[in-house]
Design a binder for these strands. Structure first.
Length: 224
DNA sequence: CCAGACGTTGTT
DNA sequence: GTCTGG
DNA sequence: CCAGACGTTGTT
DNA sequence: GTCTGG
């Protein structure tokens, strides 16, 4: 699962890394929560060029009567994404990359919960395989997205049994391209990222509150 | 035919 | 919108 | 994901 | 317990 993550990278770095254009502004984030506006890489609907835009995290299907449904749609299971009514049309034509550089998972220890931060060994930014939709409320179109999950790798599994799909660079072009329709190849991209390219450490439980969006959220702590 | 769901996770 | 269940 | 609210009426 | 809000 993935219900909280970080994006500390600068926009310039992301634009360069993904050869993308953007008109947004962002500041470093240490605790991104569902329902917030998050930076997403996709192909422009008209231009076909890579662009980074802001979307609400929590996918609102086009047919929804009410945006509240988005609170439940923060993740999509890779195993069933193709069949679920809420996700299948986006899986065909509206794939994206949700930009990040770390994610949190909570380990349940009886009634206590211990959060851990997971990131790449070098701390570099990356992207989650994601889907997006447009939903129209009155005359106001709203774009929203979800993060695809898969089974945990060896580094994650004793904290939690699911993890977000970190998309391998080599798959990005086909993943973003709405014309690419090899379903089996798309699904094969939705695999756990290799453990040996990741690191983890425990962090302060204050990350639980979305109000705490500060550097202390990503500092290692000693468990005692 | 119409009505109702459409999601993931964790816990019991 | 589209599918499942009654 | 976790945290926090969860209600109505009347008065200031 | 369940839903909303961030």
């Amino acid at each position: 699962m993935c219900g909280r993550y970080t994006l500390r990278a600068r926009l310039n770095q992301l634009l360069q890394m993904y050869s993308a254009q953007s008109e947004i502004e962002i500041s470093p984030r240490y605790n991104i929560a569902p329902s917030q506006k998050v930076p997403v890489l996709r192909l422009g609907e008209d231009s076909g060029m890579r662009e980074i835009v802001l979307m609400r995290w929590g996918l609102i299907p086009s047919w929804a009567k009410d945006e509240k449904i988005g609170y439940k749609m923060i993740n999509a299971r890779s195993e069933t994404i193709q069949e679920k009514p809420s996700y299948r049309s986006a899986f065909k034509r509206r794939r994206c990359l949700v930009l990040a550089d770390g994610f949190f998972e909570w380990q349940r220890q009886g009634s206590k919960k211990q959060p851990y931060l997971f990131q790449k060994k070098d701390g570099a930014p990356y992207g989650y395989a994601g889907l997006w939709e447009t939903w129209t409320k009155g005359h106001q179109p709203m774009q929203s997205c979800t993060i695809i999950t898969t089974t945990a790798n060896e580094l994650v599994e004793d904290v939690h049994d699911r993890m977000p799909v970190i998309l391998q660079e080599r798959h990005l072009e086909n993943w973003l391209n709405p014309e690419f329709d090899h379903v089996d190849r798309l699904k094969a991209m939705l695999a756990p990222y290799p453990s040996d390219e990741m690191q983890r450490y425990p962090v302060d439980p204050m990350v639980g509150s979305p109000k705490n969006d500060k550097p202390e959220c990503v500092e290692p702590i000693e468990l005692g």
